[in-house]
């Protein structure tokens, strides 16, 4: 039994679930709100100078600060809930797959959902900006180019910065029968992170897992992007390691 087989079965379980609708809805929110932004002349004038890069940079900020963390909280809760809600853990665990395969195949589905979210977010941003250029003829897009290196780096940083939150929330989601607990903890930690960054200016905030996605989009707050992403990856390894250990030892999940 290989991991790919387990992954395919996990994907099949998500058919007709709210996860895919959530992915599309969450990805369209930032482009949608940004479409109605820049109504003031000042904002539009600034955008005209380098429309692609400014628009995508600001989109990434909004995504990283709020929408991506909330999306992570929701998908890491909803995916394991498929088993809890249908009372199917016992059938899954008596099938001839190792518990590690079950764990990693679920984690892989989460990765697919995150990458799809980022892809759709960029696609909708493109649609949002081109539609805006139709409405504001002074916004001439073809005279400007996108900095592809910055664009790819931005997406990679967004992905890596969220791994710490992902690790923690996946652990909570897979161990908790309750739907509310991981969501409550996730929202609570997000609020705490926002307060830490915006109000308290706590010097050690960058070591707080949920703060990292906010800090990476404001380099002035915490210089050293590579350190932040490394901290995020470190947390992810720690949380997922603990989650796997617990998943392998605690057999009955009901």
């Amino acid at each position: 039994m290989n991991l790919l087989t387990s992954f395919r079965t996990e994907l099949l379980k998500t058919r007709r679930t709210s996860l895919w609708y959530l992915c599309c809805t969450a990805a369209i929110l930032v482009p949608f709100f940004m479409f109605f932004d820049y109504e003031s002349g000042e904002g539009l004038n600034e955008l005209k100078t380098d429309p692609w890069n400014i628009y995508f940079r600001q989109g990434q900020r909004a995504m990283n600060i709020m929408f991506l963390p909330m999306y992570i909280v929701l998908i890491t809760t909803l995916l394991p809930q498929i088993e809890y809600k249908n009372n199917t853990w016992k059938q899954v665990l008596t099938s001839p797959q190792s518990t590690s395969h079950i764990f990693f195949s679920k984690l892989l589905v989460i990765q697919v959902l995150i990458l799809l979210f980022i892809l759709l977010h960029n696609l909708f941003m493109l649609v949002s900006l081109t539609t805006k250029s139709v409405l504001y003829p002074t916004l001439v897009l073809w005279e400007h180019t996108i900095n592809w290196m910055e664009f790819l780096k931005m997406n990679a940083i967004s992905y890596m910065s969220i791994l710490a939150t992902l690790g923690l929330q996946f652990w909570l989601g897979i161990r908790s029968k309750s739907f509310l607990l991981p969501i409550g903890v996730g929202i609570g930690l997000w609020i705490l992170s926002a307060v830490m960054v915006a109000e308290l200016h706590w010097p050690y905030a960058k070591y707080f897992p949920n703060v990292i996605p906010m800090m990476v989009v404001f380099p002035k707050l915490a210089p050293g992007l590579s350190t932040l992403t490394l901290i995020s990856v470190g947390y992810a390894v720690l949380f997922l390691g603990l989650a796997l250990l617990e998943f392998n030892t605690k057999k009955v999940k009901e």
Binding site: M1, K13, R15, T17, K85, K90, Q91, T94, P96
Partner: peptide
């Protein structure tokens, strides 16, 4: 477990999938 079929207490299947889809989840396993 590859040679064991089991039904423990209540049916453990996915409410949002059809009968065929439910079996399709486990068929490759």
């Amino acid at each position: 477990l590859r040679k064991v079929g089991s039904l423990i207490e209540s049916p453990s299947l996915y409410g949002h999938l059809s009968a065929r889809e439910n079996l399709e989840v486990y068929r490759p396993i």
